[in-house]
Design a protein around this nucleic acid. Structure first.
Lengths: 184, 184, 184, 184
DNA sequence: AATGAATGAGATTTCATTCAT
DNA sequence: GATGAATGAAATCTCATTCAT
């Protein structure tokens, strides 16, 4: 009857669930993330989660995948927009210091993701892809070893900001990035 | 003799529990850490955990505190042993690359700790003290801005190693550290 | 039909749980009332209790609420059926002495409720409403001060019967009620 | 050596424990009474409780026994001091209304005791003795049936005061007691 | 005589997941 | 296709009681 293909009532629901999952992980950490909290946050019925996703673990994995996707794109776009290495150094500095690159909540999520990746192969793969893409984006402007160092700075300072809850000294960051870029 | 002072049957038990907690967190992450797993690992009965600690959260907090303590000491000792800045750069490189500074398991734990610190004020404080002590140790050899940059490199590369599961290029690390140290 | 309204498999379950809770409290007292005992008595799985009720305390509160409701209704009906004050005195005497008003188990429960009300605000409110409704029912036949006195007799003799485990002297009760009614 | 008879270090400790038990029961109810809370309240070590008493139940039983003893004595003394029936009516009214007879906490405890007596034979016996002694004290002034009625008023109004948390109308109480005394 | 560390049984509660509708 | 009532496994935690000292 009428073919069994039907359009979902709420085609954005899966995405809404993943966004809610990220919000819950930001607030409560992976260790405090439950079906119920996600459902409440997303404003969808509880059964909807297990209907759309095999398990909580799957939700977490796909949520992190979505996060990495978004971040990597922004990262890529920012670096592609830089005309030369000097501009690229400034762009990286913006990525590190700027709240528009990553809100405090985003920094929390990145920490959660890298921590979780040690215990979940799918997320580990997401993390590796993230690093590879960052590396590729940086490679538009910097030699290979500088890419690795700059990427470490980005990760490291993300943690520092999350822990210390205060902004970085922009001049110091720019000087460091520039020095590292020039070292190779 | 005749004194009425009671003595613990197993005076090292608290520490054994904390060590077990770290082991469980390494293997399963904070999200997979439970009383039962810790008790089994420590070889103590379940009730022992809540006899010695108010809650699982308390155990996690004190375990991370213990971890930070140990790491900071090693960090400090390594830098104090360096006679001059060149030696200090090499020492930092060892800290970053060397498996004797931090086993893969330790790297996992550090990730867990910084992730958890976003959701637990006591651990946040432990994280801040960790950063402050690292900074102080580095300040034995480097100017203030360089300390912050080097520290970010340490944290960032810790994550990279944990995610990529492969050793860093020692020469590249040393070159980066040296360049950063010279930049200020 | 075809409606998407979900329907409880066992719509009377909540009430069954509350009834079971009262039975357990009768037999074991509030201090011996546990989830397990209630679940067993109600013939429902343990998880069902916390699915339907936030906590054991909530179950106890709602169970007492249900008890008060039932009792108050019977009380009201009995007094409304009395055509005049003489009949009302007889009715009150029946309420006090008659096992059909309150079984020994009910007397126990009433004691439990008033005792518990000193430690739980919700049950305290239930107790106050109970008293107010008793008072209103008595006020159909007696002047205000007599209502209070008669109500005290009902409560007091309930306790006596529960403690002494033997029936009251009906003539003495009737004489007392009549004397109190005439005193104001 | 030196004979094994020794004087206890703290001969009042048993009584201190029983007093603490009553305090805990007043605040938390029998259902919230634990060894630990009693020990803390009494300022004695935990092991002291099981050293002096066989079980928690024993402590509760003896505490209620002590309560009944104290109350009965006060009751008896008050009624013995009354020269005639009129004075006895006033004395009973004082017992019912006066906060010096029973603080709000005492009323709570009496409720707890009668509730608990339905589930503990030893306390049931204490309750029966209490009633018998009250009866005997009242019998100094009133005929047998009046004693039972007056006693019910005392118990009933105790509950009312505990539930309603406000004082009784003394004149109404006196009028009721007088009327009941005159009825037989 | 006295204690408090220690434990195991069991209490409350949470929660991923199942499944009838 | 979708839901939320329902459940059982397991999580956290409490506590009476034991017992080495």
């Amino acid at each position: 009857m009428a073919g069994s293909r039907r359009v979902a009532n709420d085609p954005l629901r899966k995405q809404r669930i993943l966004d809610a999952a990220l919000a819950v992980m930001t607030e409560h950490g992976v260790h405090g993330t439950t079906h119920r909290r996600i459902a409440e946050r997303a404003g969808v019925p509880l059964g909807s989660l297990t209907y759309h996703f095999d398990s909580l673990q799957t939700i977490i994995e796909q949520a992190f995948e979505h996060l990495a996707e978004t971040m990597s794109h922004h990262y890529r776009a920012t670096l592609e927009a830089a005309p030369d290495r000097r501009a690229a150094c400034a762009a990286v500095t913006d990525l590190i210091c700027g709240a528009e690159y990553a809100t405090p909540g985003d920094l929390t999520l990145i920490n959660e993701m890298f921590a979780y990746s040690n215990h979940d192969e799918a997320v580990a793969e997401v993390g590796r892809r993230w690093l590879a893409r960052s590396h590729a984006s940086l490679a538009l402007h910097f030699p290979e070893p500088a890419c690795r160092a700059i990427d470490a700075l980005i990760e490291g300072w993300s943690i520092h900001q999350a822990v210390e809850q205060k902004p970085l000294d922009r001049a110091m960051v720019l000087a460091t990035v520039t020095a590292v870029a020039a070292a190779f």
